[in-house]
Amino acid sequence: MNIFRFAGDMTHLISILVLLLKIYATKSCSGISLKTQELYALVFLTRYLDLFTGFISIYNTVMKLIFIASSLAIVWCMRVHPIVRRSYDKDLDTFRHYFLVAASFILALLLYEKFAFKEIFWAFSIYLEAIAILPQLVLLQRSGNVDNLTGHYVFFLGAYRALYILNWIYRYFTDIHFSRWIACVSGLVQTALYADFFYYYYISWRNNAKLKLPA
């Protein structure tokens, strides 16, 4: 474990806490893409298949449980919670995310570290996580004004993988066995997708103005 990876995990956790805060404080999920949340739940469920078979550390197990539980809780809130579900922008959140699932799965069958059940699903979860934010970014552009908590949520979500890139660079120079090309390349693509969001987030912070993405 290195400081970059720990900071990355904490930033990821903060993004989830900010989203939970937004939903519980405002009793609303406006501006949040249910499709992206469903994709994240799928990412965690397919990546942590070794949750009960392999043990790495208490920290690793606890964080996996938190990520799985929180992503499922958010999907439940947006689909079932009588008050929250009413504020879901159903007619704006129309990205066909099944294509993202299919493309990631096909790629995982072609490009993997080892042709084994858990490895294919691990690669699938890595590819899917890289593009899972697309429905959310499209929704932000469509819904114009972005409330503060939603903006912070997306910012921390993008920042966590950028910290993981620093972690991979660090491990590349310190770990002789280290070779995580699948995660590295996907992580670069994932972070690049946030580039324009990061720019408009910075502008809104510098001008102390509302976050606004061009349509």
Binding site: R5, R47, I56, N60, E113, W122, Y164
Partner: peptide, 10 residues
């Protein structure tokens, strides 16, 4: 064989 490279990252 080298220790199975487990995915130790989240």
């Amino acid at each position: 064989s080298p220790k199975q490279e487990r995915h130790d990252e989240l």
